[in-house]
Amino acid sequence: ALTKEFCETTLRSDNRSAAANDTRELALVAMDLASTAAASASAKARSALRSSGGRGSKDRDTEYSLRYCLMDYGTVAVVLPACRAVVEEYSPRDFQAPFDYLECAGRVMDAAGDCWQRVSYEDGALKRALWNDAVDVANRANLGQALVEQMVDFP
C-alpha cells in the first residue's frame, strides 16, 4: 500500500510536480517515473540473466524469475506510453466513462504486480537481487494508478 511519504518523495523527485496544475499532470509525472524504473529494472534483470549463463545455470529459480520479470517489464514498457497518451487526452468535459481511463493504469499495475508477486515468493540471494527493483516499479505503477483514479474522481 502507498505511503504518503513515498508518494511525496517520488513525485517531488521530478521538478514538473511543482508546476502541475491538476492530478492529470501529476499522474503523467508518476507514469514517467514508473517508466524510468521499469527501464532500469529491465536493464539490470537482463544483465543478471546474461551473467547467470542463461539456460542450464545452477540457480534455475533466479533464472526463471528474471525471465518472467523481463516479460513484465517489457509489458510495462509497451503499455505505459500508450496509457500516458490516454491520460493525456483526458478532459472532464468529454464525459467519457471513468473506466476508459482507469483501464490502462490497471494494465500497467497488472504487469508490475506480476513481477512483484513472483519475486515475493522467493528468498535469499534471488530476492536481494530483484526485490528492490520489483518493489520500486510496482510502487510507482500503484502511484500512477492512484492518481489516475483521482483524476477521474473514482472513489
Binding site: A1, L2, T3, K4, C7, E8, L11, R12, S17, A18, A20, N21, D22, T23, L26, M109, A112, G113, A138, A141, N142, L143, Q145, A146, L147, E149, Q150
Partner: peptide, 15 residues
Amino acid sequence: DLVATACEKAKGHEA
C-alpha cells in the same frame, strides 16, 4: 500544495 493534497488522498492505495 497539490502534491501534498494528492498524496494525502493516495495514501493507502493498494493495487
